[in-house]
Simulated assay, not measured.
Amino acid sequence: MSRYEIAFSGQLVPGAQPEAVQANLARLFQADAQRIALLFSGRRVVIKSNLDAAAAEKYRATLERAGARVEVVDLDGPLIEEVELAPPPAETPAEAPVQARPAQASGATRPLVVKPRDEYMAAFADVEAPDFGIAPVGEDLQDAKAEVRAPALDLSGLSLAPLGSDMGQAKAAPSAPPPDISHLKLQE
């Protein structure tokens, strides 16, 4: 008995409006807008897995009525992944393997030239990346900090109070005298 999974990649049924499909899926899954937005991120999201054929068809039909085009994948089927390899680049004498080179003193970076080691890395042969180089051992990598000058303030109008003097804090109000309770008696 085959097992299936239902996956969604953000594709819609022809003629479906994206806002209407999002609202339909929110109602169908009883989910908030943030979770529905994750479904429409463009990445493949598995909605349900380990279904039999009848349940997978029911999910597919329901989601297509809501406007979402889903993919039904047979989990028990052979796993064949098609990989298209990029052709190896034509080697020229100007190309050389990546080497550690010190960074230029001017701060400008020159493009990094990479010689692919195999057909898989050939896909990255045309990637333009700056060559930052490697600093010599013991060199300080942190940028020098600019010296901070003290601000020019006019403090001539200020003076210091003598030691122990009152700086003008508000004094606490004297507490009220305790109430007179001499006329009160306890009864037995």
Rank of each mutant, 00 (worst) to 15 (best):
S9V: 02
Q11G: 02
V13Q: 13
P14H: 03
G15K: 09
V21Q: 04
N24W: 04
N24R: 01
A26K: 03
A26Q: 13
A31I: 00
A31M: 11
D32M: 00
I36D: 00
I36Y: 00
I36Q: 03
A37Q: 14
L38V: 09
L39N: 09
F40Q: 09
G42D: 07
V45F: 04
V46E: 13
V46P: 02
K48P: 00
A53W: 03
A55S: 13
A56Y: 02
K58C: 02
K58F: 02
Y59M: 07
L63D: 08
R65Q: 15
A66P: 12
V73I: 15
D76Q: 15
L79V: 13
I80R: 13
V83K: 10
E84A: 08
A86M: 08
P88G: 02
A90S: 03
E91N: 00
E91V: 12
A94P: 00
A94L: 06
P97T: 05
V98M: 11
Q99M: 11
P102W: 07
A103P: 10
Q104I: 01
Q104K: 10
A105Q: 12
S106Q: 10
G107C: 04
G107K: 03
A108Y: 08
A108E: 15
P111R: 06
L112C: 06
V113H: 04
K115Q: 13
